[in-house]
Design a protein around this nucleic acid. Structure first.
Length: 270
DNA sequence: AAGGATTCCTGTTGGC
DNA sequence: TGCCAACAGGAATCCT
């Protein structure tokens, strides 16, 4: 599933093929995504030139002169540049045909993704409330500490909240909390500034590692060469409930929080 | 109002 | 071995 590193990888992959290209045609094969693809999306886009492709959190933007397309890959979405005349496959819901005889094809089996149109992307309700990028200077322990005062919510829910920081999915939350030695159920408001510094570092390191490994975090991901994803091999606790803690050999606990798989070491994480 | 629960969806997995 | 329920997860939205 696309985590923030995969979305950035996607942006880098498609941008050179899209930027500066004029849109010839937009085909919506199935508009029933997370929200319905707007009926007028094709006519908003056709004839316009894609100026830039940008990423914010896990959202991608195709910036045109009159507005922007907001794309989210959801759980199972992918964007590919098509260079031949290969026929669309199952779940290829949206396709943008460009002047360079290439196209941008969106595939999303679970349809948690979205394609929306906005004339003012930064003020869009999905975007305007987002927290800082985890790899930016705006994100640090002091920010987490300040935002978390009086908060009763568990720390794991807190760091997975997009208003706090973007891009921390369930896998990263588990890994970062283990690295920082913080129990996932600890109340966010009851963590010291020092420990928040450690946590912010852990979040940054975990995301950075995933990016360096090629942005492959899906545990069963197999690339085109049939090799498993590299980041999966460096997971410390996620998916390892019942096995022994790499630091203290205590059996890792596997519980459910907010209906999400949560793994931690009951001895190392307090 | 904050925080927990539910919801969307389909491919994969695990238990019997 | 085969079938089917459970599971997976981003994040808005609903509910308490």
């Amino acid at each position: 599933m696309p985590e923030l590193p995969e979305v950035e990888t996607t942006r880098q992959g498609i941008a050179p093929h899209c930027e500066g290209q004029t849109i010839r045609q937009v085909v919506v094969r199935n508009p029933r995504l997370r929200w319905p693809v707007p009926d007028d999306l094709p006519q908003q886009l056709e004839g316009q030139t894609i100026r830039t492709v940008e990423r914010r959190a896990k959202y991608l933007f195709l910036h045109l002169d009159t507005g922007s397309v907001i794309v989210h890959l959801g759980m199972s979405g992918s964007l590919r540049v098509i260079t031949d005349d290969s026929a669309p496959m199952r779940h290829d819901h949206v396709e943008i045909f460009l002047d360079n005889h290439r196209s941008l094809r969106f595939n999303d089996p679970r349809r948690f993704g979205c394609w929306l149109w906005t004339t003012d992307w930064s003020q869009h309700p999905l975007i305007s409330q987002l927290g800082p990028e985890p790899l930016s200077d705006d994100f640090n322990g002091a920010w987490l500490f300040r935002l978390s005062r009086q908060k009763q919510t568990p720390i794991k829910s807190f760091i997975m909240d997009n208003h706090v920081v973007v891009g921390v999915g369930n896998i990263y939350a588990n890994e970062a909390l283990f690295k920082a030695g913080i129990h996932p159920k600890r109340k966010a408001g009851r963590i010291s500034l020092d420990r928040y510094h450690r946590l912010a570092d852990a979040i940054r390191e975990t995301l950075q590692a995933a990016i360096l490994m090629g942005g492959t975090t899906l545990r069963d991901f197999v690339n085109s060469e049939g090799k498993p994803g590299y980041f999966a091999q460096s997971l410390l606790v996620y998916g390892k409930g019942g096995t022994l803690c790499p630091d203290c050999n205590t059996s890792l606990k596997d519980i459910r929080m907010n209906n999400r798989s949560t793994v931690y070491c009951p001895r190392c994480q307090r």
